[in-house]
């Protein structure tokens, strides 16, 4: 464990808490993409199947359980409890355009052609593009609530911090996982224009609006 990975995990946990807070406090999931949240739940489900078989550490097990529980909790809030506030008209990104190619790629490019490894690879590739429906939704509505922008900033920062973690582990532990690194870079790059808007607007106290 290193400081980059720890802060990355904390940023990830913060993002999930911010989203749950937003939905619970405003009793609305307006501006949140249900498709992205469905894909995040799929990411955690396919990545943490070894939760039972591989015990790494108490931290690892606890965080995995929190991530899985919170992702399904978010789906519950969005599609059951506050379903009436789900903005399906603006959440129109075609998920199959992401899931199908990602599934195909995970069969073609992986470290080991075993079920657990292919599912892990699928989850890594899927996570790198899972935010697209959310970013697409913001581009369609042209704006995002401030707390939703904080959620996205924390979510985008987590994988950026993981990239620093991989640099650290490469030099100090000789650890290197090309699939995770490439997907992590793609994932972080997708946030760049959001990061720019967030830093130039939200940090100045303005609302996050996209130039028309």
């Amino acid at each position: 464990m290193n400081v980059f990975r720890l802060t990355g995990d904390i940023a990830h946990l913060l993002a999930i808490i911010l989203l749950l807070m937003k939905i619970w406090k405003t009793r609305s999931c307006a501006g949140v993409s249900g498709k992205s949240q469905m894909m995040f739940a799929l990411v955690f489900t396919t990545r943490y199947l070894d939760l039972i078989t591989n015990f790494i550490s108490l931290y690892n097990t606890t965080m995995k359980m929190i991530f899985i529980a919170s992702s399904y909790g978010t789906l519950y809030l969005m599609f059951l409890k506050f379903r009436a506030t789900y903005d399906s008209n603006h959440d129109t990104f075609r998920m199959e355009f992401l899931v199908v190619p990602v599934a195909g790629l995970s069969f073609l490019v992986n470290h080991d052609f075993s079920p657990l490894e292919i599912l892990w690879t699928f989850s890594i590739y899927l996570e790198s593009v899972a935010i697209l429906p959310q970013l697409f939704m913001i581009s369609k509505t042209g704006e995002a609530e401030t707390i939703t922008s904080h959620y996205l900033f924390a979510l985008g920062s987590y994988r950026a911090l993981y990239i620093l973690n991989w640099v650290y582990r490469f030099y100090f532990e000789g650890f290197f996982d090309l699939i995770a690194v490439v997907a992590g870079c793609v994932q972080t790059v997708l946030y760049c224009d959001f990061f720019y808007l967030y830093i130039t607007k939200v940090w100045k106290g303005k609302k996050l609006t996209l130039p028309a």
């Binding site: 070894d50 078989t53 591989n54 080991d112 079920p115 657990l116 993981y162």
Partner: peptide
């Protein structure tokens, strides 16, 4: 299910 190499990252 074969046990993948230990993955210690989340």
């Amino acid at each position: 299910i074969g046990l993948g190499k230990k993955k210690d990252e989340l």
